[in-house]
């Protein structure tokens, strides 16, 4: 684990919100990502967490070049991702792969598993047929299938199996970074465990860098090295995974942790902080965006808190810690 592979630098992304009688008039903007900075080091697993709508997917998709930023930069090995052209762009497309929540969305139903897995190779590189076939077979085996399953179609696999196929197809280019957006959220717990174990194995074997987005904090604690907590388009806390679960500082992070459900009836009702719902990202509160839900809000919270470092690698944006 060493140098940063990905640097997200003061990134912003806005979306126009349409309204009016015909739905074609811009009635406002959502600041989906609003000045987010973090770095992902080579070989580490970085997680983004936070309630739905806080901008996790937008951040990930901007890193993947699926969105153009409205401000700031994403750099891969020091180069601006959105300024890449020609050979460099081709290389980027091989080096960065993604697995999304819904395996249906990422797998063409009319292609056989083997063809799907080989897709990224075909589009980008001259590799012989025999070599492609061998790589597909090896990857199928790597994700736990016999080679003959290459001939099956996506509907012939269960949800968890499709997610393993999606992972194999992401791995075929030997990527440096794999972005996983809620990769197990649609799966049953028992099957989630199969996929997460596989992710862990790949992590250990190939030292691939992962950016994982998940709303499940228990999964994040188990798989991630470092965690960034997002709230209404901003990063509010960042630290090592263990540290986050033992010494969370930001009141929002604490509320998220306390909201996790009991795993035994004797702990029933212990969490459930009453903090209502997140305000609209079209009109985020001034100052600290969490102050409308924060049990510790003070007068100074009407001003924007800056990120401060509390400890090596542990930063937080909250006035409780500003001096």
């Amino acid at each position: 684990m060493g140098r940063p592979l990905i640097e997200v630098d003061n990134l912003s992304k806005r979306f126009a919100v349409m309204g009016g009688p015909l739905g074609v008039r811009t009635v406002g903007h959502v600041r989906a990502v609003d000045g987010v900075s973090f770095a992902i080091n080579e070989g580490e697993t970085y997680a983004l967490v936070g309630e739905s709508g806080c901008g996790k997917t937008t951040t990930a998709r901007t890193i993947l070049r699926l969105f153009t930023p409205d401000g700031g930069q994403v750099r891969v090995e020091g180069r601006d991702v959105h300024a890449l052209t020609g050979v460099e762009l081709k290389e980027f497309r091989l080096a960065v792969q993604a697995v999304f929540q819904d395996p249906w969305a990422s797998l063409n139903p009319r292609m056989r598993a083997g063809t799907l897995i080989a897709e990224a190779l075909k589009a980008n590189r001259r590799v012989s047929k025999a070599e492609t076939k061998a790589r597909v077979a090896a990857l199928l085996e790597r994700v736990g299938f016999p080679a003959w399953k290459a001939d099956l179609y996506p509907h012939e696999f269960s949800g968890g199996q499709r997610q393993r196929i999606a992972l194999a197809s992401a791995l075929i280019t030997d990527p440096k970074l794999i972005v996983l957006d809620e990769p197990v959220s649609a799966l049953d717990l028992s099957v989630q465990a199969q996929v997460i174990n596989l992710l862990k194995d790949i992590q250990a074997e190939l030292q691939t860098t992962f950016l994982i987005i998940s709303h499940d904090l228990d999964t994040v604690r188990y798989v991630a090295d470092r965690v960034g907590v997002m709230y209404l388009g901003q990063l509010v806390e960042e630290t090592r995974a263990e540290e986050l679960f033992e010494h969370a500082k930001h009141p929002y992070t604490r509320a998220l942790l306390a909201s996790r459900l009991a795993l035994h009836p004797s702990e029933r009702g212990e969490g459930a902080p009453v903090i209502g719902e997140a305000p609209s990202p079209m009109e985020p509160p001034s100052g600290c965006r969490f102050r409308t839900r924060c049990p510790h809000a003070m007068e100074i919270c009407e001003q924007v808190p800056t990120m401060v470092q509390l400890d090596v690698g542990h930063t937080v944006a909250c006035h409780l810690y500003s001096q």
């Binding site: 968890g160 989630q192 465990a193 604690r221 795993l263």
Partner: peptide, 23 residues
């Protein structure tokens, strides 16, 4: 037993999650 065991909450980062094989 298998369903209760597949939860990641109390599993150490070095350990493997228990899963129920198959479907």
């Amino acid at each position: 037993r298998g369903l209760l065991d597949s939860h990641p909450r109390y599993v150490g980062r070095g350990e493997r999650l228990r899963s129920i094989p198959g479907a």
